[in-house]
């Protein structure tokens, strides 16, 4: 019997085991990447950017904060003229008064938000304690209620004043939404927002994506459809159309979009719209905040 033989066999099995192990590892890696390629927020954001870049190769990234005006030269001229005498200015001033005026109990917004008023870029965020997406309007109302004040309405009215003030003070801050991937509830909220975005609804059967991905840059009547990267940077926004003619919130805009496609709108600041805001805001990561905004 050759004495070397058992040695060889041993070696072979060892290499065999090694190969097996490598195979398993690469299989696992493959599986993980396959799953994450479908799901991760960062992959989503990169996919949106890739899509818009291929549609609008000459639009620099920072321009996306200007919405449709990044891709609509005619509308842009009009908009720049409006921005010379910003229609939202009086609302900022009223908001400052709100920020500085104490509640009946002597405390004020400043006590709830000690880092304020430059805080818009901290929202929306995942609130681990309350297990929900926290938005700025919701945080403002939680502050009010904690101090015995009535909550403000979420679509129209004075909430837009204080939001205008905070938005103006927060100009230039960078959107930096985080989805804690180790928290399944946070991931689920993000995924829920994404699902909402891609779901067709209403009698007209549109999803957010039908207009703002599939047909971005094209026109409905005379209106150019804006890209979703940049949708959240400029709120609240003054809209000059007749039934606005004032500053309104992002959730008021969601409501309007849903009504346009003949879907029953969700509740402003309810879980559906907050989760949608979470997803949508993540897409704008890296862009500068430029609210309050002015739009048609």
């Amino acid at each position: 019997m050759d004495p070397v033989e058992p040695m060889q066999t041993q070696l072979l099995t060892a290499t065999g085991r090694e190969t097996m192990k490598k195979l398993l590892i690469s299989l696992a890696v493959l599986l993980i990447t396959a799953v994450s390629a479908q799901a991760g927020p960062e992959e989503d954001r990169m996919a949106f950017i890739k899509y818009y870049k291929s549609k609008f190769p000459n639009v620099p990234m920072e321009e996306y904060a200007n919405g449709a005006y990044a891709i609509d030269p005619v509308g842009r001229e009009n908009w720049e003229a409006i921005e010379e005498f910003p229609p939202y200015e009086p609302f900022i001033d009223r908001g400052q008064v709100m920020w500085e005026t104490p509640f009946a109990n002597g405390k004020g917004y400043k006590d709830c938000f000690p880092d304020g008023p430059v805080i818009a870029h901290h929202y929306p965020h995942w609130d681990k304690k309350q297990k929900m997406v926290m938005t700025l309007p919701l945080a403002l109302n939680q502050c009010r209620e904690a101090n015995g004040e009535k909550p403000l309405k979420y679509k129209k009215g004075p909430i837009n004043n204080i939001l205008s003030y905070i938005a103006f003070q927060s100009r230039g801050q960078v959107v930096n939404v985080k989805v804690p991937m180790d928290d399944p509830d946070a991931v689920a909220a993000y995924e829920d927002g994404k699902k909402f975005y891609f779901t067709r609804r209403g009698q007209l059967n549109f999803s957010c994506a039908s207009c703002h991905v599939q047909n971005t840059g094209l026109k409905v009547r005379t209106e150019i459809l804006s890209p979703s990267v940049g949708h959240v940077t400029h709120w609240p926004t003054y809209r000059s159309k007749v039934d606005w003619s004032t500053v309104g919130t992002l959730h008021r805009r969601f409501t309007g979009c849903n009504k346009n496609i003949r879907a029953k709108p969700m509740k402003a600041q309810g879980p559906e719209y907050r989760n949608l805001e979470y997803f949508l805001s993540y897409l704008s990561n890296g862009l500068e905040l430029n609210g309050p905004g002015a739009r048609k």
């Binding site: 390629a37 479908q38 992959e43 990169m46 996919a47 949106f48 890739k50 899509y51 995924e191 994404k194 699902k195 891609f198 779901t199 067709r200 609804r201 009698q203 059967n205 994506a209 991905v213 599939q214």
Partner: peptide, 26 residues
């Protein structure tokens, strides 16, 4: 009939499906 159609519309999309025009971006 709107209620039935709206229900069907939502239920038929209970799973998230990324449309083909966007899927390639991943």
């Amino acid at each position: 009939s709107e209620g039935n159609l709206g229900y069907q519309q939502a239920v038929s999309q209970s799973e998230l499906k990324i449309p083909s025009y966007f899927k390639a971006m991943y």
